[in-house]
Design a protein around this nucleic acid. Structure first.
Lengths: 210, 210
DNA sequence: GTCTATAATTCGATAGAC
DNA sequence: GTCTATCGAATTATAGAC
């Protein structure tokens, strides 16, 4: 009877080599699927993105997508599960908070980074898909609020202030990077940072109205 | 040979009556379809709304929807073809423009009027459907810009100013009425009008930054 | 005017060969 | 690990009976 212990050294190396190759390819495939999925979700939203299209973009078979991620909702969850790495503005002069925050988001969206892409994915999908909307609310509560907490003087005003900030920042992403309403889409990043930054600044530090 | 001229008076009345009844029912049916379509589009967006669901809501057969509106894109166009009836603020003191504008939109969205519903429909659909996105840009150019033109001192700044206004107003609709991010959704209308109104006021009348 | 029946696609998901 | 083949469900749209 031939057991695995009876393998010759060359056989073992061959087996090992094949396993490593398969594993590395699997990692590449998984990454390729995720990248293709993010791009599709970002352009077309959850509902219009098909497993078949993602597979074609990644250059593999649709069945592989199911094998790696199980279901379409799980693929979406994997594609959007990311730390936005929001900036720490504690050391920035208080008067520059608004402008710096807008600059940060603009560089993410305009530069099409992974973090920026995820935000656009959620924005495109959250308007029709309940799961994506929940992710957006969670992102607000778990990432945006904590990151801005150190900047707000009165803790009791934190949720309202961050809510107002979100209304302007998401509206900016929507008009500039999704709907591409021309005056906003064409506006230089510096002008956006200055004008919208002044609004964020007010929402963060100016007295709230009743 | 029996021609239509040979109909008796009672027969003619009967025929006429039947035609009138059918016509009135047709008008009702068409209106019922449109109302059901608006409600579905507003809640679920373009892609997820099905002809079958609309027909069921309207209490009629799916084939009737096709008969009256041809195709699904045409149904969508008919459901969103509406005059937003934006307010004329020419007689309002310049210092109140921002707050009044926010109050106007809030009453439309919170009260679920036809105009407000159409804006929410477009907002939910425009993130994934190119046709809806085009409708949104057209609405911006054909209705929002003209309605705000009389308020802006320097005509050359009109597009940028209205673009900034749109970024905040659409962001407000998104966070409050679509995503329902809690601090914004729970905020009393008066507080929203005051805080966001101040932003709109700045975008309309304060000096633009470079 | 309204409905039944169905054609023609498209998609998510599964089973199984290699 | 990867792919072929296919099922079952859902959807838009059409043809035609009543």
């Amino acid at each position: 009877m031939k057991s695995s212990h009876a393998l010759s050294e060359s056989q073992r190396l061959l087996t090992y080599d094949r396993v490593v190759t398969k594993t590395r390819r699997a990692i590449d495939t998984k990454a390729a699927i995720l990248a293709a999925a993010r791009a599709r979700f970002a352009r077309e939203g959850y509902r219009s993105t098909t497993i078949r299209a993602v597979a074609q973009d990644a250059g593999i078979d649709p069945a592989l997508v199911m094998r790696y991620f199980g279901t379409k909702p799980e693929l979406f969850a994997a594609a959007t599960d990311i730390d936005l790495r929001l900036p720490d503005l504690a050391d920035v002069p208080a008067g520059e908070h608004g402008e710096r925050l807008v600059e940060h988001f603009l560089s993410r969206w305009d530069g099409r980074t992974a973090e920026g892409e995820v935000l656009l994915i959620l924005l495109r999908s959250a308007t029709t898909d309940a799961t994506a909307a929940a992710s957006m609310r969670e992102l607000f509560a778990r990432q945006l609020i904590p990151s801005l907490r150190p900047l707000i003087a009165d803790e009791s005003e934190l949720p309202q202030r961050v809510g107002l900030v979100a209304s302007q920042m998401l509206g900016l992403a929507l008009t500039r990077s999704v709907l591409e309403i021309s005056p906003v889409a064409a506006m230089p990043a510096e002008a956006v940072a200055a004008n919208v930054g002044a609004t964020i600044q007010r929402y963060l530090h100016e007295p709230l109205r009743p």
